[in-house]
Computed example of a mutant assay.
Amino acid sequence: MKPGDPLFLKETPWQLVQLLGKGKSGYSWLVSRNGQVAVYKQIHHEPVSYYQFGDKFAAEIRAYHHLKEAQVNLPALLEYDEKAEWLLKSYLEGPTIAEQVAAGTLKNDVWPLIFRLSRHLQVLGINLDWFPANFIHTGGKLFYVDYEWNGYDPEWDFVNWGIYYWVNQQGMKKFLETGDHTAINLNGTGKPITNQLENVVARLISLQSAS
């Protein structure tokens, strides 16, 4: 698959525009049709050393409905095909939080939104994949562009795991430029580099706890 290739989704013609990214469960492409754009996600079954999956596709569909009920801002699920294991989602324009982290342009008004969401979901027993590539800040709202969720576990929550990716500007810049996971992760793990970031994280947590 490459940009410009045709794509038929339930016999409807689309065109691949750009690979947006690869996650633990699939490849996401920007696709277009008659001036309309959307995100096409094709589930993959490539192994992930630090994560165990069941039925990835069924989990995505269940997760969408569960997170909608939990009042998480999500891109709309437009269409899907269970047999071919793809989903078509609405496209949210704008840089991801990961891109803003790398560029040093993350706005301060994002922090209350992500901390509020984290606290809200902790009460509901939900963890998101808090990696910043999964979030877009637009229209004053924070959107979670993935549908993945897990039961709450403090080891993998925002303040103990995700936030370290949100403050690692140099590491995120290198990761986005090269794909080198060791720029942001402890080698061979799904855990973030925390060295020299603890003080920044502690300050943010303190500020948000006081607000």
Results as ranks from 00 to 15, higher is better:
residue 169 Q to D: 06
residue 150 N to Y: 00
residue 190 G to S: 08
residue 182 T to M: 09
residue 194 T to D: 01
residue 158 F to S: 01
residue 166 W to C: 05
residue 187 N to R: 13
residue 171 G to T: 14
residue 164 Y to K: 01
residue 180 D to T: 07
residue 168 N to A: 15
residue 161 W to H: 15
residue 196 Q to E: 14
residue 156 W to L: 11
residue 159 V to W: 00
residue 171 G to Q: 11
residue 173 K to R: 15
residue 190 G to L: 01
residue 194 T to G: 03
residue 174 K to A: 15
residue 195 N to G: 06
residue 197 L to M: 09
residue 184 I to L: 08
residue 192 P to E: 05
residue 192 P to V: 06
residue 164 Y to N: 02
residue 195 N to M: 09
residue 180 D to W: 07
residue 151 G to D: 08
residue 165 Y to T: 03
residue 158 F to W: 05
residue 199 N to F: 10
residue 171 G to M: 09
residue 185 N to R: 11
residue 161 W to F: 08
residue 196 Q to I: 11
residue 188 G to C: 08
residue 151 G to E: 11
residue 167 V to P: 04
residue 166 W to P: 02
residue 189 T to V: 05
residue 176 L to R: 06
residue 199 N to K: 15
residue 196 Q to Y: 13
residue 174 K to R: 15
residue 179 G to W: 13
residue 175 F to G: 04
residue 179 G to F: 12
residue 185 N to I: 02
residue 185 N to Q: 14
residue 150 N to W: 00
residue 166 W to H: 10
residue 161 W to L: 02
residue 153 D to E: 10
residue 150 N to G: 00
residue 180 D to Q: 09
residue 192 P to K: 04
residue 173 K to I: 08
residue 182 T to G: 05
residue 180 D to I: 07
residue 191 K to T: 06
residue 191 K to P: 01
residue 198 E to H: 15
residue 197 L to Q: 09
residue 190 G to V: 01
residue 159 V to C: 06
residue 176 L to W: 14
residue 160 N to T: 09
residue 178 T to I: 08
residue 176 L to P: 11
residue 194 T to P: 00
residue 200 V to S: 12
residue 183 A to P: 06
residue 158 F to G: 00
residue 166 W to N: 01
residue 162 G to N: 04
residue 164 Y to I: 01
residue 158 F to Y: 06
residue 188 G to A: 07
residue 165 Y to V: 07
residue 192 P to L: 05
residue 172 M to N: 07
residue 186 L to M: 09
residue 184 I to D: 02
residue 150 N to S: 07
residue 156 W to V: 09
residue 195 N to Q: 11
residue 184 I to H: 03
residue 181 H to T: 13
residue 187 N to F: 12
residue 172 M to P: 04
residue 197 L to F: 11
residue 179 G to D: 13
residue 188 G to K: 04
residue 164 Y to E: 01
residue 154 P to D: 08
residue 158 F to T: 02
residue 190 G to A: 08
residue 185 N to H: 12
residue 166 W to G: 02
residue 163 I to A: 04
residue 180 D to S: 07
residue 189 T to D: 03
residue 184 I to Y: 02
residue 190 G to M: 01
residue 163 I to P: 00
residue 199 N to M: 08
residue 161 W to V: 01
residue 167 V to G: 05
residue 187 N to H: 14
residue 159 V to N: 01
residue 179 G to I: 14
residue 198 E to R: 14
residue 183 A to F: 11
residue 179 G to P: 12
residue 169 Q to K: 14
residue 153 D to K: 08
residue 187 N to V: 10
residue 175 F to I: 08
residue 167 V to E: 03
residue 182 T to I: 13
residue 166 W to E: 00
residue 152 Y to C: 03
residue 191 K to Y: 07
residue 164 Y to S: 02
residue 183 A to M: 10
residue 158 F to A: 04
residue 188 G to Y: 04
